[in-house]
Nucleic acid binder design. Structure first.
Lengths: 188, 188
DNA sequence: GTCTATACCGAGATAGAC
DNA sequence: GTCTATCTCGGTATAGAC
């Protein structure tokens, strides 16, 4: 596989990811994506047999992002610090979350309805980060209820993102992050 | 306005609402909707000038549902009972929520991206129920932080719905509802 | 291997018969 | 007022030139 190919493929996937986040995956036509990526329209099919396949590549790209994020978090020494750092990152992205919703939640919900292979794959966008959160709680001494705690933290994250998006109000995130941190302190 | 007209219009709106919930509003074509409602396809434009107008009618129909729900809740004597009844209703609908997501959250998020009049109107799907929740907290003695509490309760609702949908797991709702009830007890 | 031209289909929307 | 037939456009996907 030559360099030019990978470059174009990468550009297509990342552009598709960007447009899917801004406008939705279904609303973004292959022409839109190709143009924005500076790739000839028909040429898309050299890299992806169908649009669905491009969708899977977008999910894979998001999963890579998540793994990179986890790797960064894991450099912190304690699980407690890692969980707080995660919540801090939510607040740091409050503007983006309020303007366009959660990139994971939005994509997951949209692809879920699409059905087929995409629906199944989209669930990984949740399992991947939630698994990591659960590990942190376990490492912090919560062997028995790690899953429950992880579910709660992740739900809180998705909830504040969805509502902040609905109202286009980043301040809601600040409010909820405050509560969420208080909650973490009570369990850790 | 004759009886036949209202009947067909009502049928169209309710069918559109059902399909929008199951498959998404954009993915549901006017032909799909008209067929499912047993109305000739071209005839849709007698009732709605554009598809967007039909979308607004769908939102209005959801708002009516919400108001009917509020009226029912308001028959209970105390705000505390009303809030618990609200949370109970979430749990009662856990199967539907896990299978198709939250009807309000899903519609709100989808129409939000659509832009235009629909984006603005879709926000009412959140303001309407959140306003009611806030009233309950205020009536229960929380004058100062009623909004914050309402935001938290509503975020928790949307969060558990989004995550339960992502995993297609109604049990997540049971877990979170339990926590949510505990939380209400601590503030009321 | 890369890209142009185009086929094909289904969408929203309209004209006009009845 | 109600419905049929159709128009137009934009989407995915493909055929084939270079």
């Amino acid at each position: 596989m030559g360099k030019t190919q990978t470059d174009k493929r990468t550009r297509l996937v990342e552009t598709a990811m960007k447009l899917a986040y801004r406008d939705g995956f279904r609303e973004s036509s292959l022409a839109d994506i190709a143009n924005a990526a500076h790739v000839p329209v028909g040429n898309v099919y050299y890299y992806f047999k169908t649009k669905e396949e491009l969708g899977e590549a977008v999910v894979d790209r998001r999963l890579e992002e998540i793994r990179a994020f986890k790797a960064e978090m894991d450099r912190l020494s304690s699980p407690r610090e890692r969980l707080f750092a995660f919540v801090d990152s939510i607040q740091r992205n409050k503007e983006e979350l309020a303007r366009g919703g959660c990139p994971l939640g939005g994509l997951c919900a949209e692809l879920h309805k699409e059905g087929g292979a995409l629906a199944k794959k989209s669930a990984e966008l949740f399992t991947e980060p939630m698994g990591w959160i659960e590990e942190q709680f376990r490492a912090a001494g919560h062997q028995k209820d790690s899953r429950e705690l992880a579910v709660h933290l992740f739900c809180a994250f998705q909830g504040m993102a969805a509502v902040a998006y609905g109202f286009n109000d980043p301040d809601l995130i600040v409010m909820e992050v405050k509560r969420l941190k208080d909650w973490i302190r009570t369990v850790l």
